[in-house]
């Protein structure tokens, strides 16, 4: 057993040290203001080498950008007595609110299933490891539906060939974050691959936060809900009365 481990370390060790990623982000925070309409993120980097680049297999890069996760319930409608109602439901413990993946080629060609399983790179793989509470046996349909609905809403994005490689050393990937972001830490993961195997991984975070009035309203709604509710009513009362008065003056 010990000999086997030693052999593994010796065989894998040098290969990891040979090529590694040096990465950067165009910004490491996104501020959500009242006029926020989305944000562009540029992920860039280079490959550092101790020796000249191997000729084959070719180099590939995958970049994923993942928003904060939360539990979701996926329901399926069935026809009962002529009307369509929710029948079966599946609870998923953590599903990302946003997931974008960019790669330098078609994902199934540049990434081996084993390494996808190990690093949970693709969204399908990422979702398959979430804790599932199901009363239905065909939960794989529910997982696929989660992915499909997320893609339709623009929250799950896949850009095959979204990573541009230059000189076998430099790479860049552009992401356009949508306006309907959930605040929290967005994790960026960058994978360097050769022949379907992951050689190096780097991770960074982007801090997505509400600021200004958005921040104050959110904090108050959660910390002083009763006061917030009363203020909302006061706002309604003042606006309702104000409009009535303005119209009365205007009519004279």
């Amino acid at each position: 057993m010990k000999a086997l481990l030693l052999a593994l370390v010796l065989s894998v060790g040098p290969a990891v040290a040979e090529e590694s990623l040096v990465t950067g982000l165009s910004r490491d925070d996104v501020q959500i203001t009242a006029d926020f309409t989305g944000s562009d993120i540029l992920v860039y980097g280079a490959v550092r080498r101790n020796s000249p680049a191997p000729q084959s297999p070719p180099m590939d890069v995958i970049v994923t950008l993942e928003g904060p996760s939360s539990p979701v319930t996926v329901r399926r409608k069935e026809r009962i007595f002529g009307i369509w109602i929710n029948r079966s439901a599946v609870d998923l413990a953590d599903v990302p609110s946003y997931f974008a993946i960019a790669s330098s080629g078609a994902l199934d060609q540049i990434l081996s299933p084993e390494d996808d399983l190990k690093h949970q790179i693709s969204l399908a793989r990422r979702l398959s490891v979430t804790k599932i509470t199901a009363n239905s046996m065909d939960f794989s349909n529910f997982l696929r539906a989660t992915q499909r609905i997320g893609s339709d809403k623009g929250n799950y994005v896949s850009q095959q060939n979204g990573v541009k490689l230059a000189e076998d050393t430099l790479f860049r990937a552009d992401f356009a974050l949508p306006a309907n972001l959930t605040e929290g830490d967005f994790s960026v993961r960058m994978f360097l691959l050769r022949g379907g195997r992951v050689i190096d991984v780097k991770a960074q975070t982007i801090d997505v936060r509400k600021t200004g009035i958005e921040r104050q309203l959110t904090n108050m709604a959660h910390r002083q809900p009763l006061l917030y509710g009363i203020l909302s009513l006061l706002l309604a009362a003042v606006a309702g009365w104000g409009a009535s008065e303005i119209f009365r003056i205007w009519r004279r």
Partner: peptide, 18 residues
Amino acid sequence: LDLLLMPTELYSVTRLVL
């Protein structure tokens, strides 16, 4: 009509607030 006609998407995802 929403109840009677077959919906284009049978599944729905509800995000639970943490």
